[in-house]
């Protein structure tokens, strides 16, 4: 049987399904950042849609607005606000990393594919560490000024 008579195997996009989103396997640190970026992204878009509806409460007048703001001043909503802030800070700074690397920065010069192969992920890892430390510091400082 000749090789040309064989039908090509169709690609299996995202064959792991949901597991492919949460299992890093050998892809290490950046894979978890990817997962967290998605989770925070979905959280932020859901919040944005709710926020647009919520800010529309002003149309019902001052009484409705004041009652809503009183609800947001309760400890539970303060905590949720902080979670939102933390999600934004992480998503924004990890987004900066993604955009910089997508545009070709911090990846080093192109090199011959000679074993051991250079890894673009490892080349921009210092940037990753700097941005994630910055995110952690901002989240901690944000919490200290919100609660204390």
């Amino acid at each position: 049987m000749s090789m040309t008579s064989q039908k090509p195997i169709p690609p299996r996009p995202n064959a792991l399904g949901l597991k492919g989103w949460v299992y890093a396997g050998r892809y290490s640190f950046e894979r978890y950042l990817y997962l967290l970026h998605r989770l925070t992204g979905v959280g932020l878009i859901v919040y944005l849609l709710l926020h647009i509806i919520e800010t529309g409460q002003r149309l019902a007048g001052e009484g409705a607005w004041t009652a809503l703001m009183a609800l947001f001043a309760t400890p539970l909503f303060k905590f949720m606000e902080y979670v939102l802030f933390a999600a934004f800070v992480f998503h924004a700074l990890n987004g900066v990393r993604l955009k910089l690397t997508e545009l070709g920065f911090f990846l080093g010069r192109p090199a011959q594919p000679v074993y051991p192969y250079p890894s673009s992920v490892k080349r921009h890892r210092p940037l990753t560490y700097v941005l994630m430390i910055l995110a952690a510091l901002t989240i901690v400082l944000g919490g200290s000024s919100l609660f204390f």
């Binding site: 299996r12 996009p13 064959a15 399904g17 998605r38 992204g41 979905v42 932020l44 878009i45």
Partner: peptide, 14 residues
């Protein structure tokens, strides 16, 4: 930006 990102996630579903 939010809905474009969500679209990217949803389009990955098999």
């Amino acid at each position: 930006h939010g809905l474009y990102g969500l679209r990217g996630i949803l389009l990955e579903l098999p």
